[in-house]
Nucleic acid binder design. Structure first.
Length: 418
DNA sequence: TCTGGGGTCCTGCTGCTT
DNA sequence: TCTGAAGCAGCAGGACCC
């Protein structure tokens, strides 16, 4: 679901294209969250619908009918509502998206085992091993589009090219519900006619820096000395953009992508300045992060606390623990330690977050017992909680400090295991 | 206009070790 | 014992992606 839409001055021609060597496919669902949500609300098909929520939230996705009014992904909800007041606003349904995504990825894997998911709604496929069985890359692209539509009831767009970067540009151009093939010998003219913002890795800031150099198209970048780009953008970005500007992208489609960090953050409904309340939110975030790590069978060693103030300035503080952990209690201890060390005197805080990095598979992590902790201590309790949540739902067991006092809750009260 | 939540990667700085 | 250089790890912040 690319947020940066662009158009070519001239669309790639409709004559049959030579797709020899174009073994990389980028498949991207069209307005995925909106299309998926409409499967549950068929009466809204053909009308403007915005997926998002909360008065401080942003647009997660919108139907093409809403996009015609200027609504776009990541736009603040307030602005989206003003642009398209007649739109129906629906909250996201992440379970539904995960289910559809799993089905789509299964379809991809029936074509080729070399599938690299980028997110729930898009993936790269290397189809070089499927050509003899299924036909040319463009033929395979058409088969995938038909299969996704028939099996999941949503449409997707496909880019077919010799490299990942160009395939991604092509699928963007094919939207919605189309396919674009970029033959190998057309790669350079194809990329060089694009605006600089079309390049992967060029966001607002980099675009500004490039415009300051007088560079507006990818061709401009290609014909700028590498030393100039490196001076303006840094070594990695400068080199990266120069390579892309000549259509060079040596990355291959990778099946396994190991996660490098796991975390959670939360924007409050209203800014908070009460340290007690903030510590409580940190506990919930720590528990959530730890539960996800345990579900993934991983532990983390470096804990990073993120704090965003009401003026949107953001700071991070990190602490590396003596040993890796997947315990919400240990993460919370570290988070509170870092938060308290900030010494904030009733500063108004908009968001807090915790993230664990330095991930190691749990079976390789040297998790040592803590002096004074019973042999079957918090780790066993955490696992018992995980099992209860898997069986009865995520809200069934919570730390006592996260339970909202309510006079009428006795029978359904979450059990405290802390 | 007023900015989510999940991430990755890069850069520059600092402090520790050799 | 002190000092400087080099290498490295950790940290903080920023930009970017979907």
């Amino acid at each position: 679901m690319s947020r940066r839409q662009f158009a070519l001055p001239e669309r790639v021609g409709s004559a049959p294209l030579d797709d020899t060597g174009c073994t990389v496919l980028h498949v991207d669902m069209d307005a995925f969250y909106a299309s998926a949500t409409l499967l549950r609300h068929p009466e809204l098909v053909g009308t403007p619908v915005i997926i998002g929520g909360g008065h401080r939230g942003v647009v997660l996705s919108a139907t093409y009918e809403a996009r015609r009014f200027g609504v776009a992904s990541a736009m603040p909800m307030g602005r989206a509502r003003r642009l398209c007041p007649q739109a129906t606003v629906l909250p996201p349904d992440h379970d539904l998206y995960a289910t559809i995504s799993a089905g789509v990825m299964e379809t991809f894997r029936s074509v080729t085992p070399v599938v690299e998911p980028l997110s729930l709604d898009e993936a790269f496929l290397d189809v070089s091993g499927a050509l003899r069985r299924l036909g040319s890359p463009a033929t395979i692209g058409r088969q995938i589009r038909d299969a996704v539509h028939d099996e999941q009831g949503i449409t997707c767009s496909v880019g077919v090219a010799p490299s990942k970067f160009v395939a991604k540009l092509a699928s963007n151009l094919a939207k919605p519900d189309g396919m674009v093939v970029v033959p190998r010998d057309e790669v350079v003219p194809f990329v060089q006619q694009l605006p600089v913002a079309a390049l992967w890795g060029v966001g607002d800031k980099t675009e500004e820096a490039l415009v300051r150099l007088g560079l507006r198209t990818v061709a401009d970048i290609a014909h700028t000395p590498l030393t100039t780009l490196v001076r303006a953008l840094g070594a990695a970005t400068g080199q990266h953009l120069h390579e892309l500007a000549w259509g060079r992208d040596p990355r291959t489609v990778e099946r396994e992508q190991r996660e490098k960090s796991v975390g959670s953050d939360e924007t409050f409904e209203a800014d908070l300045d009460d340290a007690v309340l903030i510590r409580r939110h940190l506990l919930a975030l720590s528990e959530r992060t730890a539960a996800r790590m345990r579900a993934a069978g991983t532990t983390g060693r470096t804990m990073t606390l993120k704090v965003r103030f009401s003026d949107f300035t953001t700071i991070t503080r990190a602490r590396t623990l003596r040993e890796p952990t997947d315990s919400g209690r240990a993460i919370h201890e570290a988070a509170v330690g870092l938060f308290d060390a900030l010494g904030l005197q009733r500063a108004r805080i908009r968001l807090v977050g915790v993230r664990m990095s330095g991930l190691t598979p749990a079976h390789e992590a040297p998790i040592q017992g803590v002096i004074g902790e019973p042999e079957h201590g918090w780790r066993d309790a955490d696992r018992a909680v995980d099992r209860a949540r898997a069986r009865f739902g995520t809200g069934v067991v919570r730390p006592a400090s996260l339970i909202q006092p309510s006079p009428s809750t006795t029978a359904q009260r979450p059990r405290d295991l802390s």
